[in-house]
Design a protein around this nucleic acid. Structure first.
Length: 569
RNA sequence: GCCCCGGUAGCUCAGUGGAUAGAGCGGCCCCCUCCUAAGGGGCAGGUCGAAGGUUCGAUUCCUUUCUGGGGCGCCA
């Protein structure tokens, strides 16, 4: 139900409460949507909450509150039920109003300015450029992209950022692996580098390098291969550029776009790593021991102090991480959200400790984290572990190619981040007719079809009425929408803005996927129960208005998920 | 051993201090002379891992415990 209506009802109850119990705070009034339609549009439990402190029976208290409710055009009735619930029922007209709001606001329906354009940086995927993106990156991409869309819908100025760890030991390993392939070695050879990357893509890169090909795109500066198998640095540059381009293609195929790519290597060349270390040392938060430089991260809640500079001289990985997050803060992002696998959980405390210790006023909870669990891919009841291309894992591209982009995105975004994800390819693909994403898309296509039929039969909403809606929404008579299924649909449409707000607030994109499934379900039930193109004009017009509104909300929601809304299926 | 996250229907998952715990898949039974059956309706299926506690009320909060995953590097 719309927030406006909810606030209105809340105000009524607060006024009643002030009469009945003047000393009790208004914050006690909480309205919830009952699961059962018989329990009305909203329920309030305040009478039960207060019964003890006021030494009155809950039902008696509820009666007093109901008696004290001010009159309202929107409220149909207030009943006392069960142990002392106050069940509020709306006037049909109040419920019907949502159709006008949706049609009037169209693709802006559900948006909120609450974020006041506060800058938020969301970092996700952040894969090392050492191979194609795997399914876990896909989960991050789906969650991250949708979360960004949700935050933007609530008025935040969102920046999507991809951080490349292009400077560590894994990159050196990549270069050695490509070099080995270029020299004709195979992973079985004795000279093959220890822990070298074995996937077929390594051979592909080696072949391209030998053929003196060039790689690059609009985001990755072009690198021309020298073909020299002894020049490890040239191999490294070529391999990293190749894989960045490759990953970029994966992301394009998935429909995910980033605003910015941040290279770890730049933190070194810009002197930011040194600067961070100096700041920490100047703040007195470091000490030398056993030939290494340590951070007093225990001062900020970490389990133990952490090594920053290894005794062999190199920095540990979290030092550039701290330097990187300082740049987020310096770039004006007072809010930063990182989406990472839960295996990175252990690093959170030390990065935050480093940021607090650096003395720039960065708060304790910076950055926020959304941690997600692993994805297991199943086919024919067995876990799929090996991809030909990547060797040791299933790639995102494999999944998109086999299951389709829409279904992959919808699936990966539709689970709570912190639950283990079992991605059943058979379910997502072979029984494609029962795929949840098609279920939602089908609702959209069905509505398009009905609207087309209406037009063909000359039964469409009169153009004058349709255009009138944008300037004068009250021109649409919706009073015919009285049935229980129509009420359910109207309520569900009205829930959309609050659902979006909550999903953004909780950093929980899966709530959007579930909402859309429920909305589609209520539409399908309605479609089977009632005909839209009936002879009675008032009924027909009202139902067409309802369908237009449902279609609009499906479109808006699917757009946030990055899933298409087809007109025909 | 310590820390984090899960444990809800046969399977995959939602939900949550409230009134008979939900959905999809799978199983069984119905519904196309009717705007797309990629749909709908119904049946079967649950001690919400277990035990205590707080509460008018607990699947939800607290404690303990069992179990699965992850983390506890001078790896990233």
């Amino acid at each position: 139900m719309s927030l406006e209506i909810k606030h209105h009802l809340n105000t009524l109850l607060v006024q009643a409460l002030q009469q009945v119990a003047p000393n009790e705070p208004a914050s006690l009034i909480v309205l919830e949507r009952p699961k059962q339609a018989e329990h009305g549009d909203y329920a309030c439990n305040v009478a039960m909450q207060l019964a003890r402190s006021l030494k009155r029976k809950p039902r008696e208290l509820a009666e007093a509150l109901v008696a004290a409710l001010p009159a309202s055009d929107w409220l149909h009735s207030a009943e006392i039920a069960g142990p002392g619930f106050i069940n509020l029922r709306l006037q049909a007209a109040a419920r019907q109003n949502v159709v006008r709001s949706v049609l009037h606001q169209a693709d802006r329906y559900g948006l909120s300015g609450q974020g006041q354009q506060q800058k938020v940086l969301v970092e996700f995927v952040s894969a090392n450029p050492t191979g194609p993106l795997h399914v876990g990156h896909g989960r991050q991409a789906a969650l991250g992209d949708t979360l960004c869309a949700l935050l933007a819908s609530q008025g935040y100025a969102v920046t999507r950022e991809f951080y490349y760890n292009d400077a560590g030991a894994q990159i050196a390993n990549l270069a050695l692996s490509v070099q080995a392939r270029a020299r004709g070695l195979t992973p079985e050879a004795a000279e093959w580098p220890a822990d070298g990357y074995r996937g077929d893509y390594i051979s592909d890169i080696a072949q391209a390098y030998l053929a003196k090909q060039s790689v690059g795109n609009d985001k990755v500066a072009t690198v021309i291969a020298s073909g020299d198998t002894n020049d490890l640095e040239a191999i490294r540059c070529f391999a990293v550029a190749s894989l960045r381009c490759e990953q970029d293609l994966d992301l394009q195929a998935f429909g995910v776009r980033f605003d910015n790519y941040y290279l770890e290597s730049s933190l070194y060349s810009d002197g930011r790593v040194e600067a961070a270390v100096q700041a920490l040392t100047a703040a007195g938060k470091t000490y030398e021991s056993e030939g290494a430089l340590w951070l007093r991260s225990t001062d900020y809640g970490d389990d133990k102090d952490r090594v920053m500079r290894k005794s062999e001289g190199g920095w540990t990985y979290f030092v550039p991480d701290v330097a990187y997050h300082i740049t987020k803060w310096e770039r004006g992002f007072q809010r930063a959200i990182n989406i990472q696998g839960s295996d990175h959980h252990g690093t959170i405390a030390r990065v935050r400790a480093g940021l607090m210790a650096v003395g720039r006023g960065i708060p304790a909870g910076y950055p926020d984290y959304v941690l997600h669990k692993m994805v297991t891919v199943m086919r024919s009841g067995e876990e799929v572990k090996i991809s030909k291309r990547a060797g040791s894992y299933v790639t995102l591209r494999d999944l998109i190619d086999e299951v389709g982009r829409d279904a992959t995105r919808f699936f990966l975004a539709s689970r709570k981040a912190d639950s283990e994800f079992v991605f059943d390819i058979d379910l997502a693909k072979s029984q494609s007719e029962d795929n949840p994403v098609y279920y939602v898309q089908y609702a959209h296509a069905r509505i398009c079809s009905v609207l087309q039929q209406a037009e063909d039969k000359g039964m469409a909403l009169p153009v004058s009425l349709h255009t009138a809606l944008t300037s004068d929404p009250s021109a649409l008579d919706l009073s015919a929408l009285q049935g229980p299924r129509e009420s359910a649909l109207l309520s569900r449409l009205g829930d959309y803005p609050e659902m979006l707000h909550d999903a953004a607030q909780d950093l929980a994109p899966h709530q959007l996927a579930f909402y859309l499934r429920e909305l589609a379900g209520e539409f399908h039930a309605y479609y089977n129960a009632e005909r839209v193109l009936v002879p009675e004009q008032d009924v027909r017009v009202a139902r067409l208005g309802l369908l237009l509104a449902v279609r609009q909300v499906l479109r808006n929601g699917l757009a946030l998920l990055g899933v298409s809304a087809p007109d025909k299926m």
